[in-house]
Design a protein around this nucleic acid. Structure first.
Lengths: 212, 212
DNA sequence: GCACTTGTTGTACGAACGTCCAACAAGCAA
DNA sequence: TTGCTTGTTGGACGTTCGTACAACAAGTGC
């Protein structure tokens, strides 16, 4: 880590790697370091210094790329959410063209790695804690939620659900998946990830077969 | 507030009220102050100093009653959860003896004041952020979750649901309610509290009528 | 080679944090 | 009244936080 040399002033520092990175790559490495710190130490341990140490970078560099921890957490959330979205897309792709199979793959993937991981919980919590006080982060959440629900509405429509029912069914299934995911993270011994998937598919069947 | 006199040492302080309270009452006032701070300032503003100021008490007193912020947050969560539980009990009482009406009252109450309030979100988030790192808090969550689910299983059994189905149905409905509640707090313009209740009742009908 | 630009460093600084503790004040027993 | 117990105070202390900034090093163009 080469941190014990810090007692010397700043004119001989050949022992520390000075590497200039592409701005995007540096941002990405900070985002990933932030995700690792959140996963390992939780919200309480998520500080500029901890993230800089994790990224192998000096503390000042964090402020050079992000206006503060909040902005970094928001980008970390967006980054992980993109990974989650990609994993679901891959599951839909793998499920083939049958609408029903695609719908089931959607909920099944929500409880499989890398999504159903307690390590992601701290990132979600850190983001949620900013929603009510920062309007731009509230907007980010609105957009993410709307995107998730719109995709689900599309899958339900493919399964032949009438348009007037789409909205409420999608809200219900989104809430069910999120609730199961949250409780799986918080009380992992209450039920398993496999059971969560089975419960969600079962509820899906009930919600899509009932007339209204 | 009488805080500007702090430059003087500690031998003339007649201007500050010194009131000795019952230990339980003092604990309760600190818990309520913690809840107010969380509601007003969010997780980030929840410090020993802020809570002491809110309670009209010196910072040192917080440490006299609680081992730290974590313990105070845990007790605040338990306190609010007890209020939520009492509100649901009252709704069940008011619903009469019909099992179906009682079950619907259960979910309806979950989205009515004082439960469906964004001000509670920060308390929940502060508690959740401790679950994965503090085993005694994880246990507290397990117990609260088990209690909630057991009550729901009881209501479902009264409605005639066969015993083998109780567990999964209760997990699903609990997750649905929690997910709707969370998303209502985070994106309040996505749907209203009334719609959340209606969606939950609708899903309830689908989940309880489907054979399996 | 030599300026010039700019990503990066390490430290310094003030503010806020949790904790600690000697001093103090109210109630109670005698 | 007097002495004792104990809830309560307010400031001291060391730590950690986020931010700011001058110094430095790697590219880049000339």
């Amino acid at each position: 880590m080469a941190l014990q040399v810090s007692s010397r002033p700043a004119f001989t520092r050949a022992e520390r790697a000075f590497t200039r990175a592409e701005p995007d790559a540096r941002r990405a490495s900070l985002v990933e370091a932030c995700a690792r710190v959140l996963a390992r130490e939780g919200v309480a341990g998520c500080s500029v210094r901890a993230i800089a140490l994790e990224a192998g970078v000096s503390p000042g560099l964090v402020g050079h790329y992000f206006s503060g921890i909040d902005a970094l957490v928001a980008e970390t959330y967006a980054h992980i959410e993109a990974q989650v979205s990609a994993a679901i897309d891959a599951a839909l792709e793998a499920a083939g063209s049958d609408p029903r199979a695609r719908l089931e793959a959607f909920v099944t993937a929500s409880f499989a790695p890398p999504i159903a991981s307690g390590e992601l919980l701290a990132t979600w919590i850190a983001f949620w804690s900013l929603v009510r006080s920062r309007s731009e982060i509230a907007r980010q959440h609105d957009e993410q939620y709307a995107r998730f629900r719109a995709r689900l509405e599309g899958l339900l429509a493919e399964c032949g659900m009438p348009e007037p029912q789409l909205r409420r069914a999608a809200i219900a299934i989104t809430a069910l998946v999120d609730g199961l995911w949250l409780e799986l993270c918080l009380s992992p011994q209450a039920f398993s990830a496999e059971e969560a998937g089975a419960i969600a598919r079962q509820a899906l069947a009930a919600l899509t077969s009932s007339g209204r």
